[in-house]
Design a protein around this nucleic acid. Structure first.
Lengths: 237, 237
DNA sequence: CATCAGTAAAAAAACGATATTTAATTTGAC
DNA sequence: GTCAAATTAAATATCGTTTTTTTACTGATG
């Protein structure tokens, strides 16, 4: 069945979700997972039929993806999935370094006991899956990705600047997209476990300088990874 | 006449602009100038009639204002003009300091002769209006705002990071909005002329440290200004 | 053989009517 | 008189058609 009945609101949690939000979430997932290829056209009519909604619902869902820069639109020639490039990823990584370092610094300065507890908890969950990692199965990588995000979110969760957190979040999502697109065999990358441990220690010690440096390094190490895998893909066209 | 005929494309420059873009630009201007009050409702039906377009055109225009955070929307209860608050402005200013300082640093590092020329030119135009300022007239304040923006844009125009420039731009617009909303008698504020001169000198000298510091100070000085004027407004409700 | 105009097909943008949801108001019971 | 349920009104969200624009195709012309 191509058009899953979205009126079937027998599910528990999805109360009151608007059609636009549903379509938005669905397309968003497609882009972030790489299912929808960069620069590919997003035809309204096709999507309309696929999701069983009206055309302006689709258009509005696509418009909202402009917020996160996940789609582009220009003049009278429709919507496209956001392109990818090495230069773009480097810019994302550089800005992430700046924002994440600032957010961690703020959190260390302002974080209370609750924040510390969140960090400890999130790190525990992440460390667990990173040590006893079976590695291969899809589901466990998904779970690792979730816990990794939760850990990094926890680290900055005492930063009170909504704008900073918002921009940081957008960049994080793009970063994950690049990893998903370019890295074909999804596993837990490099020796990320000890990096997380080091960041955790520095943060709990309230060592701003060190935490900042480690955070920057952590992000910057993703660049050669993407370079190695994205460059061949781009060249092979 | 309430509904200006947008099909009247007898004007020169406005070629190929889509209806959504026109409505978007119009409402955007309303928000940035403070004509549309913060948190006020943006009723689709009313806007539809005002601009003489269909309802989904209005909705899409409003959706695109979500990109810059100039409007908010939640569930099934429509669109609102973005709210303002002192806390919000402080966050904007803090993040602007971070981003602008970085962008200036990058520009000083990478800027070529063309960049320098742009900076010199933009500064000249700004300095001119700031010295011989007649001050009062609306039109000259508008012109000063334009030149001020151009100068600051020129300063960062050698920064190659599109994401950084994009976020910076969004924050700059919000900043201008706060000034317009809270400052009733629009004049060229405080002794901004010498600040610009100092920044200009530091940048042309390629003194990164100093330029960064001056840029941060320049931005931070807007905070007490807004505090002084926005606090009474908020209290008077 | 390339270029260009003209035509046909496809897609995007725009519209306005309909269905749903939320907010406001009235009514009725305690 | 107060609160709650029911009714009405207003506004949002959704839909599918119509109009406009772009793109692809075809054939004539230099």
């Amino acid at each position: 069945m191509l058009a899953p009945d979205r009126n079937n609101d027998s599910r528990e949690g999805a109360a009151g979700k608007t059609a636009i939000e549903e379509v938005h979430a669905e397309i968003r997932k497609g882009i972030l997972t790489g299912l929808l290829e960069p620069e590919s056209r997003l035809r309204v009519e096709a999507l309309r039929k696929e999701y069983g909604v009206g055309s302006s619902t689709v258009r509005e869902a696509l418009s909202r993806l402009l917020i996160e820069n996940l789609v582009t639109t220009e003049g009278q020639r429709g919507f496209h999935v956001a392109p990818v490039s090495l230069a773009d990823f480097r810019q994302i990584a550089e800005l992430r370094m700046l924002l994440e370092a600032q957010a961690v610094t703020d959190s260390i300065r302002d974080g209370d006991d609750d924040w510390e507890a969140r960090v400890v908890g999130a790190h525990h969950r992440l460390a667990k899956i990173e040590t006893e990692m079976p590695g291969k199965e899809r589901s466990s990588v998904d779970e690792w990705e979730r816990r990794n995000r939760d850990f990094h979110d926890a680290l900055v969760s005492a930063c009170g600047n909504r704008w900073l957190l918002n921009f940081r979040d957008i960049l994080y999502n793009h970063s994950v997209r690049y990893l998903r697109i370019s890295v074909t065999e999804r596993t837990i990358p490099r020796d990320v476990r000890s990096e997380h441990q080091a960041i955790f220690n520095a943060v709990i010690d309230r060592d701003v300088e060190l935490a900042e440096k480690l955070t920057r390094d952590h992000i910057w190490r993703t660049v050669p990874e993407i370079e190695a895998r994205l460059a061949p893909i781009a060249a092979a066209e």
